[in-house]
Design a protein around this nucleic acid. Structure first.
Lengths: 149, 149
DNA sequence: TTGACTACCATAAATTCCCATGCTATCCCA
DNA sequence: TGGGATAGCATGGGAATTTATGGTAGTCAA
């Protein structure tokens, strides 16, 4: 489970330390890390190879000519299997750096099954937005309901 | 698992480097590489010999006398088992070069169980198309469902 | 004997690997 | 309880390896 938020530096080689707790999480379950473009936000999403494999297997179940299959294949094209160096760092591929407007700082945000990597400004925006919605609409009822089921 | 996208050069002998990660993927599972005409797009599809067998089996499920089965068999007839040179390059057969309108550049696009080889312009078109669908229809249902589970 | 194809060598650029440093939080003992 | 030792984490830099790509020589067939 990926939880908590942390701010790490991206160096000139596009290297960044994955938060130790995330790493331990992957190592414990003997998983490789996959990074890909979020389909919803302007950020990178990180998850396990097992989870990605599940998506790949799911493509075969769909009508091969459908839009959903098409989009999922495109998503694979923008996904990367990432290796750690001995210190727990990874290199973020150029494509993803650009997509998420990353330069020298990254915000890691654990969201359970996966985690997000934001640029500081984009993270700030999303955070503000969530606070605003919370104030106007109150806590998310649907979410609570789903959890209890 | 074939993931990520990369742009490689095709030289005058129609040689092109298969992206290292794709090669490793094939070597790890001790598979040979098969290239064939995509059934859907104007591009080459690359996959393992095992996966190719799965395609062939899928054709057998169809009515053997149907037009679909006929067309699929004709397409399959243009598939090639490809050998690497010592540097990880392959020679793309003329038939496939023409079919995919390839000349001096190739875009390799991993889509999980297999990968596509596009001409740069054709790739661009497909990518644009995916962005458009994503904007209009939102992420694939499968993706959303999986996330909530 | 020419042309196509294959196998191998060479090189520059990119990427990976590993060592070193500094910081911070934790621990332990006086 | 304070302060130094320790361990783990984040980060910087450089050496070693890999990758992509250009080229050449050898081989086989027409």
């Amino acid at each position: 489970m990926f939880l908590s938020t942390s701010h790490n530096k991206i160096d000139l080689k596009c290297r960044v330390s994955i938060p130790a707790s995330f790493r331990v999480n992957l190592e414990k379950s003997n998983e490789n890390l996959i990074l890909f473009k979020s389909l919803q936000f302007k950020c990178i999403e990180g998850t396990t190879s097992t989870r990605m494999q599940a998506y790949i297997d799911a493509i075969d179940e769909l009508d091969a000519l459908s839009d959903d299959a098409f989009l999922l294949r495109m998503m694979m094209a923008d996904s990367f299997e990432i290796k750690f160096d001995i210190n727990g760092r990874v290199v973020i591929p150029d494509t993803l750096m650009n997509f998420a407007s990353l330069s020298d700082k990254a915000v890691f945000m654990g969201i359970g099954q996966s985690f997000y990597i934001w640029s500081p400004t984009e993270y700030e925006n999303q955070y503000m937005k969530s606070q605003k919605i919370l104030k106007e609409k109150g806590p998310p009822k649907l979410f609570i309901k789903k959890k209890i089921e």
